[in-house]
Design a protein around this nucleic acid. Sequence first.
DNA 1: AGAAATAGCTTGCAAAATGCAAGTCATTTT
DNA 2: AAAATGACTTGCATTTTGCAAGCTATTTCT
Lengths: 141, 141
Amino acid sequence: MALDLLGDRWSLLLVRDMMVRGYRTFREFQRSGEGIATNILSARLQKLEARGVVEREAATEDGRSTHYRLTAKGIALAPVLLEMLIWSAHHEQTDAPSAVIEQMEHNRAAMLAETYRRWAKRDSTPILPPFPSPITTRTKM
Amino acid sequence: MALDLLGDRWSLLLVRDMMVRGYRTFREFQRSGEGIATNILSARLQKLEARGVVEREAATEDGRSTHYRLTAKGIALAPVLLEMLIWSAHHEQTDAPSAVIEQMEHNRAAMLAETYRRWAKRDSTPILPPFPSPITTRTKM
DNA sequence: AGAAATAGCTTGCAAAATGCAAGTCATTTT
DNA sequence: AAAATGACTTGCATTTTGCAAGCTATTTCT
């Protein structure tokens, strides 16, 4: 099963941050929500890379920086994440606005298509706004 | 996020075993695949119960035994598990026959409907046969 | 150009989670 | 009545995590 790869507290979070929030750098993951320790973050990224879920490439703008990006195998986790997000919204208290969730739920295919499209275009603007904030910008799709 | 609840090596496995293989007792989980330690199993079942994913009830046939069963919240994880299973089949090597997977993939709704139906009827015959074995004659129990 | 920052890690160590073996305690079975 | 079974605990060794400090290669600031 895939739980050997994703069955820890952080791996899926990282995948989600890449997929949905457009994070790409070590720093972004680190500054993200719950605060992962740098050694664990490093270990997880290596594991995900070794298992073909993410790939790393040197950042062009900044020689110090590395960009992590989902592979095709990684982006294919979108349906899993989407269902998980929907489940969470229904059964746990989340900070995601319910209107957004409902929209996603009734339009899974469009949501996924948009996710894939952004990935293919290397568009890293977040698909979901950072949550604690109210309703941002325009709905895409 | 729900990863706080399911983000460990065992919790989702247990949910899967209940949902897909019809496991209900401590012993069944223990004898299952990877071999979870009894103390961890106990702890996970308690956690899942505390978080409303499973509920326990005394077994009628055997006074020593307890039955664990998914709650509505628990069975609602079916889409997540299904997508995960499909992802695994595509991107990791699994022991599940590909014909079965393909069937599931092209018929998600039916698969889910059947899962819900069995849950509602308290039918605990496994929806998927135990895998490593080729063709299973009779469903166990 | 030199000093200070920054990105991405690694290392050392304490704390927490996990795994393993053994033991407990009600029921069943024999 | 004795042995076995289901469902757990408990104690302890091992592994994984978290936290604080480095460390190195760029950038950026002055």
